[in-house]
Nucleic acid binder design. Sequence first.
RNA 1: AGACCUAUGGUGUAAUCGGUAACACAGCAGAUUUUGGUUCUGUCGUUCUAGGUUCGAGUCCUAGUAGGUCUACCA
Length: 555
Amino acid sequence: MSTEARESLNFIEQIIAEDIANGKHNGMVHTRFPPEPNGFLHVGHCRAIVLNFDLGLKYGGKTNLRMDDTNPSTEKTDFVDNIKNDIHWLGYEWANDVLYASDYFGQLYDFATQLIEKGLAYVDDSSAAEIAATKGDTTSPGQNSPYRSRSIAENLDLFARMKAGEFPDGSRVLRAKIDMAAPNLLLRDPVLYRIKHEHHHRTGDAWCIYPMYDFAHGQSDSIEGITHSLCSLEFRHHRDLYDWLIEKLEIFPSRQIEFARMNVTYMITSKRKLLKLVEEGLVSNWDDPRMPTIAGMRRRGYPAAAIVDFCRGIGLTKRDNMIEIERLEYHVRQELNQSATRVMAVLDPLKVVITNYPAGQVEWLATENNPEDPESGTHELPFSREIYIEREDFATEAPNRKYFRMAPDRDVRLKSAYILHCTGYETDPATGEVTEVHCTYYPDSKSGEDTSGVKAKGTLHFVSIAQAVKAEVRMYDRLFTDPNPTNHEDRDFLEFFNPDSLTVITGYAEPSLAQAAPGAAYQFMRLGYFVADESTRPDAPVFNQTVTLKDSYRP
RNA sequence: AGACCUAUGGUGUAAUCGGUAACACAGCAGAUUUUGGUUCUGUCGUUCUAGGUUCGAGUCCUAGUAGGUCUACCA
């Protein structure tokens, strides 16, 4: 009864549990995921999405999806659609419709006016360079702006005229009047509004002044009644300003809590750097299967459930972390092992002729769709005199006692078919390369009805040559040659781009693969998991390697 | 150099008013296996340092050390 282990809560859950116990916000929990629609979502966002939406689900609250679109220069509606699609794909549903910080521009303007009226904000005519120059630094205080002591009336007038479009870009800003000597640089009269005569993807030309992050994010949280506003560690310093604004504006007290964002080896999460990969043509696009974007991982064949499980499993702290990609791959394999249909495909073919099998004869053999799922049934694949096996599965001489693949005078089973006895092989006189292998088969060794008594230690996959379908197979390796490519002070991350991260080959697949539906997951037996690419067609099947199988064979 | 944040196996986390440092991934070894997959078993290895408080410290205190963040009209 009382032997059940106490549930281990992460530090944010502890805070929430405490707030609920104390009756804060009447026990309500309301979170949000606030992406800026200026790029594709990536692994790092997955962690934040899972965290915020799971918390909403767990504590009976809601989670908003809010586009943080306060900078008209970089944001686009296209990105909004991708973001919505990615979140849905992960399996989450947001409360209400999608919300936009830009919907609050009117409210935000009123907040700014209130601040001016309280003598807590002023219009500064200084240039960006002047503001930066008088900011001081970590060891010395800044200097007050000469415009800091303008009257409230003058500030009100100037701010209204900023909004009216009377001034050019960069000529004036609205600043909070806090403390130019504050140890936290963000509190040294931070800029609240800037002038940008630019078209906004939603508000059009209605505004020519736009709020800065610090004067939009926290206020949006407050307007929406967000109880726990979760963000990454680098926003710690912003919290002082976040709290100051809420206090001075006397609005709903959302609470910001910072956590360490997730880093994964061989993956980068800088939007700027991901964009560079696309622009330089090193990857095909944002959804290239090598990209750590949600779109890329989806196209790579990573199941949404695997990504979500991964994010849930890594815990949550305030420590910088670097999670090994093997852990993500573990979840991908675990998920795919349960769901992927088993098929056979040979990627590096070596012809095998079964000399005692009648030429022209074809047998259709039943093979399990998925041994992990008894309900999954079987499908049929052809067997005939001439087949392909993996070149790697043949050796002219068995290297050691632990080798149990094909070699002269050895017996080996063909998965779901017969046991073969290797009688010899032919080589290219010029190169010495093996060109063909000869075998005989044991007619009474058919899978499921084997009475041969022959013991074969190894089992190989194969395809019947006559019925095999050629497929384009894209083999992937890590995108970078270094687990943390952006961590080198003296070298650009592109120096670590792995030129072998994509290898396109022609494989030979069992005929059922011609009908693969885009997105369908398969296990090419003994090779790995593959997904039918969105471009796959019956006459030209295309597969992306998702991840290899774990391989404990060591020659 | 200033403020703030963080230090637990190779990696990520747990240990909830101070009470035997545990789980997962990775690694290694073995069993099972018509996928050298899956599954199962075993194994390796951990509290940054120095003081202090205490019967007892990963946990509390002090001082160091190391790493991270911050001086955009980006978010």
